[in-house]
C-alpha cells in the first residue's frame, strides 16, 4: 500500500492538517509514526485506515482487511463485550460461530474473559480498551492501524498487544502505530515516519533513536571539583551555583556505572544514593 502526496483538510476551505505525505506501507512491515501532539499523526492514521478520504493525492494498493484501534474507545454502546465483538467480526467478514470463538480467544488473551458478558457501558476504561484492541485483531487484518492503542492497558495486556502486533507482521500483515512511549516495540520498526506541522518525512534507520539501555543515577557531593574525563561521559544536572554542598546528580549508562563510581570515590567524593532511571512498566 502507498500514500502518494496525500493531503487532508477538514472542509473545503479549512486549513491543511497534512500535505504532500508520501508513505510506503509494504506487506510484513511494522511502521511507526512519531511526532509531537497536534501535528497530524492521528489524521495520518485515519487516512491510512481509510476512515477519511484524502483531500488531495491518492492511496493505492489498499489491502482487503483493515482494522483500527482508536485512541479512546467509547464504551457507550448498548452491547455486551462479546456481542460487540461478534458484530465487528461479522462486519470484517467472519461467520457467526468463528466470530464468537475468536472473540472469546482474544478476550482471554488480554485477560478480560470474565467481562465477556458484561455490558460495554459497565466496563472500566482499561477493559473497554481491551475490547477495542480485541475487535481489531479478531479477523487477522492485513492492515492494522493503532492510534495509541496501548494507552489504558495494564502491563500484561500491553505485552500481549506487542506480541499480537509481531504475530500480525510475521503473518504478512502491515502494522502502523503511534505510541507516546519511545520504547514501544523499539528497534523493531521497519520504517519510521515523523509528522511535523503537517509534513511527513521518513526517518532514516541510521538516525533513529536506538533503544536506550537502562541508566544509573548517582547522587554525589564533594568538596573538590569534578575530575576531568569521567568514564561513560555522564550527564550532570547543573550544580546549584549558590550552594556548592548540594549533591550533584550524574546519569550514566549502566555499563559505565562501576567505573564512574570508582572515579568519584577516588576523587574523595561522597555517594548519597544510587538508582536506575527510565525503566518503567
Amino acid at each position: 500500500m502507498r500514500l502518494e502526496r496525500v493531503g487532508r483538510r477538514y472542509g473545503p476551505r479549512g486549513p491543511w492538517v497534512l500535505r504532500e505525505a508520501v508513505l510506503d506501507l509494504p506487506a510484513s512491515a511494522l511502521v511507526r509514526v512519531v511526532g509531537t501532539n497536534g501535528t497530524g499523526k492521528s489524521t495520518l492514521l485515519r487516512l491510512v485506515a481509510g476512515i477519511d478520504a484524502p483531500s488531495e493525492g491518492r492511496v493505492t494498493g489498499r489491502p482487503p482487511r483493515t482494522a483500527y484501534v482508536p485512541e479512546r474507545f467509547p464504551v457507550a454502546l448498548p452491547f455486551t463485550a462479546t456481542d460487540y465483538l461478534v458484530h465487528l467480526g461479522r462486519v470484517q467478514g467472519l461467520g457467526r460461530a468463528t466470530a464468537r470463538a475468536r472473540a472469546g480467544e482474544w478476550l482471554e488473551r488480554f485477560g478480560a474473559a470474565e467481562h465477556a458478558r458484561t455490558e460495554l457501558a459497565e466496563l472500566s476504561k482499561g477493559t473497554g480498551q481491551k475490547v477495542a484492541v480485541a475487535q481489531a485483531l479478531l479477523a487477522d487484518p492485513d492492515l492494522l492501524v493503532l492510534d495509541e492503542a496501548w494507552t489504558g492497558l495494564d502491563t500484561t495486556a500491553r505485552a500481549e498487544l506487542d506480541r499480537a502486533v509481531r504475530e500480525r507482521v510475521a503473518a504478512g500483515g502491515t502494522a502502523v502505530f503511534v505510541d507516546h512511549d519511545p520504547r514501544r516495540l523499539a528497534g523493531e520498526a521497519d520504517a519510521v515516519y515523523e509528522v511535523h506541522s503537517g509534513a511527513v518525512r521518513a526517518v532514516p534507520a541510521a538516525v533513529r533513536e536506538a533503544p536506550r539501555e537502562p541508566r544509573v543515577r548517582i547522587t554525589a557531593s564533594g568538596g573538590k571539583p569534578l575530575p576531568e574525563g569521567l568514564p561513560g561521559a555522564p550527564a550532570a544536572e547543573p550544580q546549584d551555583p549558590d550552594d556548592a554542598t548540594r549533591p550533584l546528580v550524574l546519569t550514566v549508562d549502566a555499563a559505565h556505572s562501576d567505573a564512574l563510581l570508582a572515579a568519584l570515590l577516588a576523587a574523595s567524593w561522597h555517594i548519597h544514593r544510587l538508582d536506575s532511571e527510565g525503566v518503567r512498566a
Binding site: G50, T66, A67, P70, E71, F73, L88, V91, Q92, A136
Partner: peptide, 16 residues
C-alpha cells in the same frame, strides 16, 4: 447513535 470512535472502527473495517 454511535460515538465517533466506534464509527471510525466500523469505517476502517467496512468502508466509510
Amino acid at each position: 447513535q454511535e460515538p465517533a470512535a466506534a464509527r471510525n472502527v466500523v469505517a476502517a473495517a467496512a468502508g466509510r
